[in-house]
Design a protein around this nucleic acid. Structure first.
Lengths: 344, 344
DNA sequence: TTGAAAGCGGTACCAC
DNA sequence: GTGGTACCGCTTTCAA
């Protein structure tokens, strides 16, 4: 910790200027071109060993770090892969996926950056991304229309990949088929003889792009049957769950799909506290197959979700970048399978 | 981008070149300077209304988006705040914190970016960050030494803030006092008459910078008492917990601090399955005060953690950026308080 | 009110 | 083997 005699008013020790390749060149007694050759190990040009050393020493002495912006400006492209940072609490599933993806893209020599577009909406956000001239953009959820894709491509993005419920014109799509999740759950409950089915819809903002398709999936699964579907808005808080549980008998439901395992845990606890027996009186099923479901009693039935591997997605991105003209691929990912445990 | 007649391979629609301000100028029939003035609403210069319109129309027609790199290159600085993307599964606490921070920094007109440095280590990672010439860098956990701070500052970063257990020379520090968390838990257990205390240490990688200080905190709390401390390595998986529970009677412990609520839930379930009664035979306390702890039976005692508000941290960053010469601030954040429920 | 031109930091072509 | 230099896209004096 440097002990700076803090004078009033900010600013005294003129922040030393950041060293440039010109500084390195000067110190090494060579030209900027030579510096560039040496530091980039350019193979198409031979530089004598003594010169190399001098350059390296000068660079180290000055603490020289190249300027990425200048470099990519000159190069006319970057290897930047951009994804908006999620602004809602992401589950362990998603964070693992992101990590894996970053790792895989890193291996392919891309630089992955999560851009915090909190507060920006739609077009604004898209423009902000485009300003960074990413070579590829990965967009989870909705929030990107065909015109957004156009803006990105128009600004040099060679690949736009959406991870969402439905494809967007012009973009590659990883279809996370959340409807299938709901469909699985709905069918499962119906198969087990349940006919008055509730579906939890989180009140939390940002989850709509998951919860609505899941809801629709249940609706579809029940379509043409005698079963009824009741939407159950629920905030992720004990009091909200308690209120819902208190009115449970009136609702007259014999099963509930709880959006995911966390909401299921919340609701199940409230129901049990209310004396409602699971699964006898009401079957409960969650989704995401989180650890906590296995730890509950009764063990929580759930819909297991198979996310695409980060490696696969990284390869899709790479393929798309190498051949931007290729037709957008649309992959159905996210295999949904019911894991039947004790709560349903 | 020049249209290279690329032989076979897919690729036909030569990717149209990205429009520049020069293109806009040409189309609008004005100079690049004028384009810049208009699009940036430069106040120090008057541009006639008709000209403004022509420029705006041309920009829209071409789908012009300015080039952030070129802009900040010219400007000599950016408003980029960089933080490494966590490469371990983050809890809800941390994700909320990040979101809030991004929002707050966004309000102050910074651009927040999480940089995926997965795979890069120490100096490499620091250099990669420095290449982006961020105006500020926020580094959680360890993994940044004084020399790293020097590299960042030497490359123009006006503020380096660490969020960790201990301060780093030259950087502002938000001291997340995880030792205090352990200390709280340890004291609490001791106060309640427990003397043979186990401490869960997650086997998962990336958690050391939290788990080790927490462990040390317990050790300190117990120092000078007659109580014993036993480290309990535990992976976040049922079988690992089952093994630990199976050997429980041999361990002869009457209390355990389970690192956090999730590990506590895992362990508590395994213990209960093994017939070990909580809290009669063994008191259990977690940390982080997650929702799930309130939903368990017995309700889980926990250490509540008060993270700094995103707004406060954003203001610290802003202050530091405006006055880089000021002495690094060191803040103890993260108030730890025991929430006594039924498991201890 | 507008335009010409310098220059931010690197890279890569061409000449010596 | 090395150096000179044009240029990437944008902002900002300075002149006109």
């Amino acid at each position: 910790m440097v002990q700076i005699p803090k004078t009033p008013g900010p600013s005294s020790p003129a922040p030393r200027p950041v060293p440039t390749s010109a500084d390195v060149a000067r110190l090494a007694g060579v030209s900027r071109a030579t510096v560039s050759y040496v530091l980039n190990n350019t193979t198409s040009v031979r530089i004598s060993e003594p010169t190399r050393r001098r350059v390296h020493e000068a660079a180290k002495e000055l603490g020289y770090v190249p300027h990425a912006a200048a470099r990519s400006l000159r190069a006319g492209h970057s290897r930047l892969v951009l994804m908006p940072a999620p602004d809602f609490p992401v589950g362990p599933l998603y964070s693992r996926f992101i990590s894996e993806l970053q790792w895989a893209l890193g291996r392919l020599d891309y630089t992955v950056v999560q851009f915090g577009s909190v507060g920006l909406h739609g077009d604004e956000a898209v423009r902000a991304w485009a300003e960074l001239r990413p070579v590829a953009v990965l967009v989870p959820g909705a929030g990107l229309g065909p015109q957004g894709v156009e803006v990105l491509k128009g600004s040099g993005a060679r690949a736009v990949v959406t991870l969402g419920s439905e494809p967007v014109d012009g973009a590659h799509a990883l279809l996370m088929d959340h409807e299938a999740v709901g469909h699985c759950a709905g069918s499962h409950l119906h198969d087990r003889g349940r006919r008055r089915i509730g579906v939890v819809v989180p009140r939390e903002h940002g989850l709509e792009s998951f919860s609505l398709p899941r809801l629709k999936g249940v609706r579809d699964a029940l379509h043409g049957t005698t079963a009824t579907l009741t939407e159950l808005p629920l905030a992720y808080a004990e009091d909200s769950a308690a209120r819902l549980a208190a009115s449970w008998r009136d609702l007259d439901l014999d099963a509930v799909f709880a959006y995911n395992d966390e909401y299921a845990m919340l609701l199940m606890r409230a129901l049990q506290d209310e004396g409602v027996r699971v699964p006898e009186e009401v079957a409960v099923i969650g989704a995401d197959d989180l650890m906590l479901g296995r730890l509950l009693r009764p063990r929580l039935s759930t819909v297991h979700i198979e996310l695409p591997s980060g490696r696969d997605l990284a390869e899709l991105v790479d393929r798309a970048v190498r051949d931007p003209a290729a037709a957008p691929e649309t992959h159905k990912v996210l295999g949904a399978t019911v894991i039947h445990r004790d709560s349903s």
